[in-house]
Design a protein around this nucleic acid. Structure first.
Lengths: 208, 208
DNA sequence: ATTGCGTTAGTTATCGATCACTAACTAATG
DNA sequence: CATTAGTTAGTGATCGATAACTAACGCAAT
């Protein structure tokens, strides 16, 4: 009988829950099986979470942490244009190494009904939107963005990321997401940024 | 005891199934309740579908029919640029009047596990992609598109549509999707189409 | 037209499996 | 020794699916 402190067990439980959702879908997330995978019994789960919904809430919190990683990753960058670039690349990088997360992100349907989970999901979606939106606004002030609605521009970028990731998921993760992301980023850049031969040359050099 | 021919009943069952998924989520789709809503008993459902999965397959077929409506809607249009415009508007129009369909479209997670359903879903996604892709290729030949990768451009457009629709769903359908669609289409057009003052004037006139 | 009959859409009743969750008890930790 | 992480055993509810039976339809022969 190996005992763990509740924070550790909670983390283990959420890890396993994400893995199960990823491998077998949300409908396969049964407390019994979840407990078995963690190596404890069903009632032991209820020592650490009062209900199944609370476990789901924990999963969403885990996804929300991604935003912190993102922001610290972008901390030192001054150019807004570069921030947008890195925002896009970060998502492909992060999801490439944490594919299980995509299963959570694309399971909106599970959360839509439950008001608490739904609010949490909206918070995640909105937080990501706000982060990018601030960069887009900044880039417009810099003059490095094509003159269009900043909100629409933000939707366009996130929508593109999401669809590439969905495609990756449906293909069973069998293409190189980072490489695909790099390609589509170039297309995006050509569309949304103003011509800047000097900067373009720099970017081109960095890529090789 | 009112009897229906099996094609009629199948249609009724699929209608109700979509409604239940939309209102209560996929996990609430129980054969018993589905039968009750249709006005028959549980085993009667199994007269018309051999399994629950086959009902889901029927739902996906229904969504696939959307492509036919789309294509006939776009039949008489000659300009590729106008076809792309109409492709985008069609989606916002159609989903605006059939919001239940969004619940199916955003429930990829249900289908990912089952190989048959998954293939059906991929077929739907791909068919929509191919349609738009052909317009994008055509527009490039016309010279009305900015010079970028046609595949990426297609992804960008569909991704934008999807994210707007997701946003609409998460907001509980409480903004005017068609108006929002019209707005983002203008942004999209400004980004992807080449400058064409003559055509722009025509389009501007038509909008008012 | 009416009858007779095979086909098919429906019924009632029930199956075993599995779900989330809990009461009551036990052993490890600090 | 108090607290807390774990256990065994079991709750009622609900799931998808089926066996056995019945009533309505459609069509051919009278």
């Amino acid at each position: 009988m190996t005992r763990f402190r509740t924070e550790e067990r909670q983390a283990q439980i959420i890890d396993e829950a994400i893995r199960i959702i990823h491998e077998q879908g949300y409908s396969a997330l049964a407390i019994r099986e979840l407990a078995r995978q963690v190596g404890i019994t069903e009632p032991a789960i209820y020592r650490h979470f009062t209900s199944k919904d609370e476990i789901i809430a924990g999963i969403l919190d885990r996804v929300l942490q991604m935003s912190d990683t993102l922001l610290s990753d972008l901390a030192g960058i001054s150019s807004a244009r570069e921030k947008i670039r890195r925002f896009v690349l970060f998502h492909f990088d992060f999801l490439s190494e944490n594919p299980e997360i995509t299963s959570v992100v694309f399971s909106e349907d599970i959360f839509r009904l439950n008001p608490i989970l739904r609010l949490k999901l909206q918070k995640i979606v909105d937080s990501r939107y706000q982060v990018l939106r601030s960069f887009v606004d900044e880039a417009r002030r810099e003059g490095s963005l094509v003159d269009t609605d900043a909100g629409d521009m933000t939707i366009l970028i996130i929508g593109t990321i999401r669809l590439i990731v969905l495609d990756w998921r449906l293909s069973d993760f069998d293409f190189d997401l980072k490489a695909r992301g790099d390609r589509i980023l170039r297309t995006l850049e050509r569309l949304i940024f103003t011509e800047d031969p000097e900067l373009d040359k720099q970017l081109e050099g960095r890529r090789e």
